[in-house]
Write a protein that binds this DNA or RNA. Sequence first.
RNA 1: GGUCGGUUUGCCGAGUGGCUAGGCGCCGGUCUGCAAAACCGGUUACAGCGGUUCGAAUCCGCUACCGACCUCCA
Length: 489
Amino acid sequence: MTNNLFVYNTLTRKKERFEPINPPFVGLYACGPTVYGDAHLGHARQAITFDVLFRYLQYLGYKVRYVRNITDVGHLENDADEGEDKIQKKARLESLEPMEVVQHYMNRYRLNMDALNVLNPSIEPRASGHIIEQQELIDKIIEAGFAYEVNGSVYFDVNAYNANHPYGQLSGRKVEDLLSNTRELDGQSEKRNALDFALWKKADQSHIMRWSSKWSDGYPGWHLECSAMSTKYLGMQFDIHGGGMDLLFPHHECEIAQNVAGYGKPAVRYWMHNNMITTNGQKMGRSLGNFITLDQLFAGEHPLLEQAYSPMVIRFFILQAHYRSTLDFSNDALQASEKGLTRLLNAVAALDNIQPSGASSLDVDALAEQCNKAMEDDINTAKLVGHLLGGIPQINKLAEGRDSIAEKELEKLKNLYHTWISTVLGLEQQEAPGKTSEIIGDLISLILQLRDDAKSSRDFETADRIRNKLTSLGITVKDRKDGADWEIS
RNA sequence: GGUCGGUUUGCCGAGUGGCUAGGCGCCGGUCUGCAAAACCGGUUACAGCGGUUCGAAUCCGCUACCGACCUCCA
């Protein structure tokens, strides 16, 4: 299988031709969410970026296994309080089972993803379901001499590793620089080196999520899951690993180190990272508290929002920018996207009304070529969308009969738009159900008001015509003393 | 402080040496009882300074400003 796809590899900082290790199969892994809160716009960007990549690779003919993990271990620790009251502590412990929290936010995440028309990954593994695999990897890393145990916890030995392997390659850092800039944090005393990171942590009394191991009752370090699960489902070496840019260091850096230390070689051929969404130029993030959740966007319920934005508008907004650029959130930008998307989808709908006739003045092949080139150049959806929008005046001309197109060309044109917009970009005509029913209600009220006016002026012919037509549509009109009521049967 | 990236027309946002990106907005037009919508057309910018070049938003240097990562974060 051949392609001209070039992707930007964070590891080499260059665009490289995409050549799968084992065509026609492609292994794709992307870091999913940590499910301790609702997904926000940034999660949408990550998911949509790799959803489009997943779709596009399939469009190119590859058999893709897409693994997107759920992090449900490692971030639920509650390590505040020392001298807490016993009763209060117990209450806290009983208030929520951690897996309840996980289930709750995982369900909500999936609902959000469905709304955004993000396809389900092939496999969606959870860290808590792969404790054994993670422990096995720890064993391997210890055996190889790159980890050590202290008081029931196991740490990765960055110094030992860095002696023969470059630690910091992906994020472009040097161990010396990192060392001189690392803050001294509490609880690092067990580590031999400030850069060392936990592979296994011994759970203290208050820690609820714990598993038994040869080292201690404890829980895995959060970098470990991706190494263990990607290896399990995609093999020791696979094609693409994706995630947000903020995961570059330390998460992905540690992942590489774990793979090399435990399995002897790096797993990933191409590292791809999507950039951040910003608000007023600042990164949107949970810890910064400046994020807008997807549910808030869909409902329009947030102080920063002037209106609700449908999931498809969000999707289109994200696709109008290249995934490696920062994208600034604003109402103006989203409203512009909303109008642009409507224009695009209307044009697609208009395609079906075009009758083929005579010769073609439109060069469909040229447009197809432009679209292909845009995507081949590191998944440039912004450019692709530009080309698709650029073809709209031509489509409108045809739809209005101001131009002609041969049948064969018309089929190509329809196919082109449907393929890119629906299949690859995942943009679908979508109605907001709540809003629609609200409008229908208002609409019927208006019609009944007109009927009342007709009755008042003794124009019973019109009044009956309205009632009969409504009845035939399944809407029963019920005349009452003070106006009319209605019911959908 | 270290490392990396960015600064594009009113707003958003593509673009790596010569060729109109695109969307929104705005202006004009078609249509229309009026308006709106829709459609058509117009709207030529690249932080500053210097350099390379026949030619630079695009390459190089300096300056200014912004951001990301360096700690959990898509």
